[in-house]
Design a protein around this nucleic acid. Structure first.
Length: 502
RNA sequence: CGCCCUAUCGUCUAUCGGUUAGGACACAUCCUUCUCAAGGAUGGAAGCGCGGUUCGAUUCCGCGUAGGGUGACCA
């Protein structure tokens, strides 16, 4: 009985910070696993001890926890079924803890004649390579393959895979269709380095087999080496017929291009550490939404999706072939749309945690905040924008009377006429003083309250100085809304302050 | 130099041989009784080129062209 359960994996090497390209690969693997009720594995490929970076594994885990927190059905804090902190039936998910397994496989490959000790030094190989280059010929190690092989594996030297059949390779990629490569793509490559560490080429295949991985999602940089991997699979199938080894389904993902240039996204192109998006207040659901659409789409015209919708709709056959350029403007828009999707409680929590004491301690805070919330929401794209609004004094005036008034700001269209401006403010104040409290029930009712005076005196003539008196800002929310928020008494006070200033 | 992949508005994309080639982001203009914001309306904007198959090609095929990947004791 064949086990048909889908198993996907994300297998980064801990050599630096995660950026959005890597996270998207993880996201697709996750979406597909969830859609198929399968298993998602986070595997750490840390066999290159020279390039490994301290703290990188932790950073990878944090990054995945951040973006996959978008999955509202997730109960655990860890989105992976198996990972560096959770071993599976196959053992550890960290390759450096699985070295024995690789050596065992390598020995079997050696015994079966699929691997041999590389007799050359690095320097000798380098000479072969430059010779080939000078002769304008492609370099193939197998042209220098020794004619006789030692009977025992010399572990002080690299172990090379011996390609059994030098021939054209053809395979099916779920995204690209039938792919093929000529025999030039096949060469003898290193399985185990002279330092005893196995290479990616060997480990990832063994792990995929041992972990039962059914679908391998990765970037197009791996297309070129796929014939080599297939050759290893074939050798292993021959050695271990009882294991019923299946070649996984290959799913090639298109590259994410930098905002400028034509190359794959890199740090040079402004690729940010994924956790920076966290710091900047991007919602996991928004980043997942945008990222999912960067190289895939379900057809149709909907653009905003929740994580469960993405899981529901995700479909390998609709993954894009060509690269997608990273567009931070659109990401910002997607985030804004997701902020709107939150409940007002969720929005409030995110905003309140950024507000200063001077606002939080206001006696009418709860009452006013409820009215202010939608005004803030329509002015932000990420929650971090709230901090900017605060710095610019765009929130303070909803709560506290402005302290510094610029007397030049009160004059409509810059026509400096203090007498006229004071007179209009005076008249406005009188209207407000005679108002009923119900006139402050909504922005519409305050507008009605001022209807007659604005008609008589002119809209700009009345509203500009009034709004300036209320907010002390050149640009702000309209006066009707501010009046509704702060109430009759405070409106009168602020107008009086303005009159006194002018 | 070899092997390989890709190609629709500025960007992300829809179309699965027949459409006035649609949507979104960005941009511009207008509306929304002052300024912003948000919202609405409108607009400009695309099938890389040449052949072939077909009654008909953005779509299928070939050749160019352009961009990209790969050819590590990296992954």
């Amino acid at each position: 009985m064949l086990n048909t359960k889908v198993v996907t994996r994300f297998a980064p090497s801990p050599t630096g910070l995660m950026h959005v390209g890597g996270v998207r690969t993880a996201l697709y693997a996750y979406l597909y696993a969830k859609k198929m009720n399968g298993t998602f594995i986070l595997r750490i490929e840390d066999t290159d001890k020279e390039r490994e970076m301290e703290g990188s594994i932790d950073h990878i885990m944090q990054s995945l926890r951040y973006i996959l927190a978008a999955d509202e059905t997730l109960v655990s804090t860890d989105p992976w079924d198996f990972g560096p902190n959770k071993t599976g039936p196959f053992g550890s998910c960290v390759q450096s803890e699985r070295l024995d397994i690789y050596v065992e496989y390598a020995q079997r490959l050696f015994d079966a004649g699929f691997a041999y000790t590389d007799p050359y030094t690095k320097e000798e190989i380098e000479i072969f390579r430059t010779d080939a280059e000078l002769a304008k010929k492609p370099f193939l190690f197998r042209n220098h393959r020794p004619t006789e092989f030692s009977a025992t594996w010399d572990k002080n030297k690299p172990l090379r895979f011996k390609v059994a059949h030098i021939e054209r390779t053809e395979w099916v990629d779920e995204v690209r269709g039938t792919l093929s490569a000529g025999p030039e793509a096949l060469d003898d490559f290193i399985l185990i380095k002279s330092d005893g560490y196995p290479t990616y080429n060997l480990c990832h295949i063994i792990d995929d087999i041992e972990m039962g991985v059914t679908h391998v999602m990765r970037g197009e940089e791996f297309i070129a080496s796929t014939p080599k991997f297939i050759a290893v699979y074939k050798a292993l199938q021959e050695i271990f017929p009882e294991k019923n080894i299946q070649i996984p389904v290959f799913v090639t993902l298109p590259p994410i291009l930098g905002a400028t240039g034509t190359k794959k996204l890199s740090k040079r192109d402004g690729a940010k550490d994924v956790l920076e998006y966290h710091t900047e207040g991007y919602l996991p659901a928004a980043l997942a939404n945008y990222l999912a659409l960067q190289g895939w789409n379900p057809g149709g015209e909907q653009e905003i999706f929740t994580m469960s919708e993405l899981i529901e709709l995700f479909d390998i056959s609709r993954i894009q072939k060509s690269g997608a350029r990273w567009n931070e403007d659109k990401l910002l828009w997607v985030n804004k749309e997701h902020i709107k999707l939150l409940t007002s409680e969720e929005q409030s929590i995110k905003i309140i945690e950024k507000l200063p004491e001077s606002i939080l301690t206001h006696t009418e805070f709860d009452l006013r905040f409820k009215k202010v919330l939608p005004l803030i929401i329509e002015r932000i794209s990420v929650f971090e924008d709230v901090s900017t609004l605060i710095e610019q004094g765009d929130i303070e005036y909803y709560f506290n009377a402005p302290k510094l008034l610029d007397k030049n700001l009160f004059h409509w269209k810059g026509i400096v006429d203090p007498t006229a401006t004071v007179l209009r403010l005076q008249k406005t104040k009188e209207v407000v003083e005679s108002a009923k409290s119900s006139d402050f029930d909504s922005p519409e009712s305050t507008k009605t309250l001022l209807h007659d005076i604005t008609e008589q005196e002119g809209r700009g003539e009345i509203l500009w100085p009034l709004r300036t008196a209320l907010s002390a800002k050149e640009k702000s929310t309209d006066p009707f809304t501010i009046m509704y928020i702060i109430g009759k008494e405070e409106v009168i006070q602020r107008i009086q302050n303005a009159i006194n200033t002018i």
